[in-house]
């Protein structure tokens, strides 16, 4: 039992790793030239298939849905889609962090607490 669940877990991890490398267009099953309507329709079709409410208890489907959701978030936003098309995943991350190198300074991107005892 333990071994099989370990294997299942491993398989899931591998699967997730594969999925996360996947291209957003491939995830939604649409071409680069597809328009807003195509993307929306594809997202809807896949949502109905993978949404956790339609697949209770299925972790795989839930993980897949999150990927699709992220892909749709990017491709349905004209700005994000353009950056993704031109600069790929890295460019997108830069954009989402607040553009270029502007906010890279530590004080701007830091959190709060300093422990006083040490």
């Amino acid at each position: 039992m333990a071994a099989s669940s370990f294997l299942k877990c491993l398989l899931l991890t591998v699967l997730l790793a594969l999925v996360s490398c996947e291209d957003y267009y491939q995830l939604l099953g649409v071409g680069k030239e597809s328009n807003e309507g195509d993307i929306k329709r594809a997202f809807r079709k896949l949502s109905l298939k993978y949404h956790p409410d339609k697949n209770p208890g299925d972790e795989e489907a839930s993980a897949k849905f999150k990927q699709i959701n992220r892909a749709y978030e990017v491709l349905s936003d004209a700005d994000k889609r353009q950056v993704y098309d031109q600069q790929g995943q890295e460019g997108l991350e830069r954009l989402e962090r607040g553009g270029d190198n502007r906010q890279k300074g530590p004080s701007a991107r830091a959190d709060v607490h300093v422990s006083l005892e040490e």
Binding site: A110, D111, H113, V114
Partner: peptide, 22 residues
């Protein structure tokens, strides 16, 4: 944002020799 959803973000330490982050 439609749910379920997962998002990541990076954060950095705010001061020199910081040993705890809240």
């Amino acid at each position: 944002t439609p749910i379920p959803f997962e998002a990541k973000k990076g954060f950095k330490t705010a001061s020199d020799n910081q040993t705890a982050a809240e």
